[in-house]
Design a binder for these strands. Structure first.
Lengths: 223, 223
DNA sequence: GTCTATATCGCGATAGAC
DNA sequence: GTCTATCGCGATATAGAC
């Protein structure tokens, strides 16, 4: 049995290798949370589907919410995986950016119901503690990484030096989340049909964003 | 310009003047909905506060949801009121745009809890009928107006001609909504402190957006 | 104690008098 | 336009049987 002591959770420690059980828990939890939402899922149900005991779940994760945050973080991680293509200097920065943004949106749509949970969390409580937790443990490292990439781009003169990289990162992430959030509604508006077409949306978004931040205003393709 | 479409698409708005009762209903409903959310508010409560009977409310609004949509539309209208400063050619387009975006955000924050309801609606059901209703009766006319303004800007060469005005309008609206949605969380991130400062956020947003769509990146066109 | 049938209440919504 | 009275429904409360 070995009931859980004060074992620290490694759920939000990216980079460390995770045990078989942890991965299974995360996968089953993701499926259930995405399908039913946070409240409607019991730890027991997750444990059953993962083929382990409830106590074992609590051994790896301090609480249900802890597990939930780990699941969201993992989803965030998947979207951020493509950042490496932004870091490797292969092709022009605009090209890489377009590809990254498109990949992010694809991942979001691929696990749409899971990312909708993330939007609900963002919209949720005004509780400061919860919000900070969410910021630090779900979005924190990935956002910092994106900002860092943009800063490097500025240092290398791939990008204008006179914009706030944090703001640009928010536009990129925010508008992709906004697609997920509003496509059902805005897709019905004649002037916003792009809101129902991920590929065009992504292309146009990066086009507007890049021409704003690309160092060369006339031709965004040049580097 | 503004080719007038014949469908007012709002159940209670015959054109110009709204009756005293309708306004009172809308005001009290807005307060209650913003405070408690849709489900938690009864028509009776609204009627009482408005000093009329429940049946009278149903005389003016076909259903509770109908009233709700009218309330959201009104909130939308307030944000859109400042559009006239975009239409009147007073100052450069970038200047007017900055002012408009800042005013929109101010209005949103002023009635934050009400606009959070709007975000909840956007995020809500995947139900196609509801989404279409929301698009046409809440966002429809205001969005079309903003797009029309951007198109005019393109025609007058105040703006680049090679971007989709619908997409640009979505960026403007989406990122302002995103501020409301994410400031609690993103404000905690060191690189995104701008997410907690409406004025800076607004300035930086329009800066990025404008340099993307302004025809001349170096100097704003005068007129 | 548990379970279930019944009464009560508040809800959105309607009908019809004035 | 505004009202009173009322509907059907679902949730809740309660009372009785077991």
């Amino acid at each position: 049995m070995a009931p859980s002591r004060n074992t620290p959770s490694l759920a939000h420690d990216p980079g460390t290798r995770q045990s078989e059980s942890v991965i299974r828990i995360l996968e089953e939890a993701e499926t259930l949370f995405a399908e039913l939402g946070f409240e409607a899922v019991s730890i027991n149900a997750i444990a059953e589907r993962a083929g382990i005991s409830k106590a074992n779940v609590f051994h790896h994760f301090a609480s249900k919410r802890d597990l939930y945050l780990a699941v969201l973080h993992r989803a965030c991680e998947r979207c951020a995986d493509h950042m490496q293509s932004l870091e490797v200097h292969d092709g022009t920065f605009p090209e890489r950016m377009r590809a990254y943004s498109a990949d992010m949106l694809t991942d979001m749509l691929d696990k749409a119901s899971l990312h909708r949970l993330m939007l609900r969390e963002l919209l949720g409580e005004e509780d400061g503690r919860v919000a900070k937790e969410l910021a630090e443990r779900v979005f924190g490292d990935k956002f910092a990484r994106l900002v860092s990439i943009l800063r490097t781009g500025q240092a290398r003169a791939d990008l204008r030096s006179d914009f706030d990289p944090g703001m640009a990162a928010m536009v990129l992430i925010g508008m992709n989340l906004f697609f997920l959030q509003s496509r059902n509604v805005f897709g019905h508006l004649p002037d916003a049909r792009v809101a129902a077409d991920p590929k065009r949306y992504s292309a146009m978004l990066t086009d507007i964003l890049l021409r704003g931040i690309a160092v060369s205003p006339a031709s965004p393709e040049s580097e």
